[in-house]
Amino acid sequence: MRNIFLFIRRYFNFLFFLLVQGIALYSLFTYNKFQEAAFMGVATETTGWFYKKYDGVESYFNLKESNAELAKQNEILLNQQGSNFYKADSSSKKVIDTVSKDSTGTQTREYLWREAKVVGNTVGLQNNYITIQRGEKQGVKKDMGVVSPSGVVGVVISASDNYAVVMSLLHRQSRVSAKIKKSGDLGIVQWDGENPMYVNMINVPKSVKLVKGDTIVTSQYSYLFPANLMIGTVDQIVEDNSSNFYVMKVKPAADFFKLEYVSVVENLQKEERKKLEEAAKKIQQ
């Protein structure tokens, strides 16, 4: 017994070092994006405050780019307004209304958009997160899509009262259902943690004809994003003879280095859809 105490006393420094390493490694390997531990909740609120203070200074440097980006988005939206279109005179001509809208006047809203200011962002790490200044009190909840004026940015994974943390596309666990705009072939966009200038698109069979510069958009299957939102363009097609699928390097449309304003998009029918799909799965089992 005495020897044990002597041993502990002699190697106390080393044992303490091992203990500290143990704590660090344990919290590193048991932590994942699904965990809503106290760490995330408290961290979001306090670090969000720091990020906001600093962003007050830093945001001036990107004003020009974010203005240009917002103006571009305005142009697209203005062009979609009904008043731009000439209406046919229906008294002298037979017109068939081809607009697929509910004519009874009750339209069901599927997606609701909310703007948010980006206050914190990293790009250089293996798992990158974005902090936005809009939380549960302002309607942001877990599992909502986040889109910048030029393209998809990520998914909300945790929200505190006034801030939310977004898992960026540049995160090794991020997966977005995507398709090639031209042909409609589906695939998955993810990131390998290596180069923050590119994300990868996988699961596209080699039978599909692909060209460099093809546009990648969100697919209609994703319940986080509306269909046909811009993700990026194909920059390089990697030859892999061992598989029947392409690996594509996709240049993201959103500029992760200069994020200023983003929109959080909520799918109002997500719960219903999830419930139905789970019920269907249960029947099959």
Binding site: V20, Q21, A24, L28, F39, L125, N127
Partner: peptide
Amino acid sequence: TFIGFLFGFSLDYFVKTPGLHAAACA
């Protein structure tokens, strides 16, 4: 050792990788 751990953990707090920098700093 303890300061190293604490210092690394404060960085982890911001970049949300609990334990990664703490382990290296310790």
